[in-house]
């Protein structure tokens, strides 16, 4: 029982990174129609930035959770204005070429600057060690990651369902052309939405900093699993992205515990099963099957 709960919390913490990143990916895809293959690199940049801020300015995780998303938002805005905006009218192949190319550039730049060995990261003392809950001893940091991510997901969900911005994002995701014909300037939302998606990938990176080896390559494997998450949840579905993120985290954690060599394979087995039963993903809309 104790072990099971520990694996579950570990899985939910790992799933938090997937959920947050997939959330950003889903919103970007919904509004821009761009599948952002650079999302893993943005996640890596978030973690690296947190490590650099800690090392140079002694900014702790608390500060990084605030500062890094802001920096990443600005970075996302620049990337969107410089590159991504030109993709919107083009064949999706160009979107792959650009965002994948961007990944290679960012990864190599980080390698040049910070090398290939991992950067160190220590979380604040308050988040170190273990905490005993109802007789089960759990790592404090993993619990924090899970709760923090859930809070962010709930916040995004509230914005999406209760505000005019959310209404516009949902409408332009579902029927972009109609939204324009109804007087919504969809183009105006493209840049902030991309920035937001990048910011939240960066936030996932910050959260993972004390938990993962911080290297230029940390986003590569992450991105592969992230796409499994998106396919499982249903491309463009925000709820699907979050649910599938946590689900994949759990599969990964239990896989590592009971069948370490198959842990990653299990994720793709899950993906294959989901596609067999529901081709559009767990929460995907039917149109996506066509």
């Amino acid at each position: 029982m104790n072990a099971l709960l520990q694996y579950a919390v570990q899985g939910l913490a790992a799933g938090s990174f997937y959920a947050l990143a997939a959330l950003g990916l889903a919103i970007i895809f919904g509004v821009l129609g761009v599948v952002n293959f650079a999302h893993g690199a943005f996640y890596m940049l978030g973690a690296v930035t947190a490590a650099v801020l800690l090392d140079t300015l002694n900014l702790t995780l608390w500060w990084s959770l605030l500062v890094v998303p802001v920096l990443m938002f600005a970075f996302g805005v620049v990337v969107e204005r410089l590159f991504v905006q030109w993709l919107l009218r083009l064949d999706p192949l160009y979107n792959f070429l650009l965002t994948f190319g961007l990944t290679l550039v960012l990864v190599e730049l980080v390698k040049q600057k910070y090398g290939v060995s991992g950067l160190p990261y220590t979380p604040p003392e308050a988040l170190q060690g273990r905490v005993e809950l109802a007789g089960v001893v759990l790592p404090r940091y993993q619990l924090f990651v899970f709760l923090f991510s859930v809070a962010i997901c709930v916040l995004v969900w509230l914005v999406m369902t209760r505000t005019r911005v959310g209404m516009i994002v949902r409408a332009s995701t579902e029927k972009p052309e109609l939204a324009r014909a109804l007087g919504i300037n969809v183009g105006r939302w493209v840049t902030p939405v991309f920035g937001f998606g990048v910011a939240i990938a960066g936030l996932a990176g910050v959260l993972s900093a004390p938990f993962r080896a911080i290297t230029a390559d940390m986003g590569n494997n992450f991105a592969i699993i992230l796409f499994a998450v998106v396919v499982i949840g249903g491309l463009g579905s925000i709820v699907g992205a979050v649910v599938a993120g946590f689900l994949v985290g759990l599969v990964e954690a239990f896989g590592q515990a009971y069948a370490p060599t198959f842990a990653q394979v299990l994720i793709f087995v899950l993906m294959a099963l989901v596609i067999l039963v529901r081709p559009a993903g767990l929460f995907g809309r039917k149109e996506a099957t066509a």
């Binding site: 995701t173 029927k175 109609l178």
Partner: peptide, 24 residues
Amino acid sequence: LPAHQRARAGMGWVQDDRGIYASL
């Protein structure tokens, strides 16, 4: 003029498939 500005100028479109949003 782009579509959204025509709508704002006072054109209302009732689409042939009704164009109702499922997510709204």
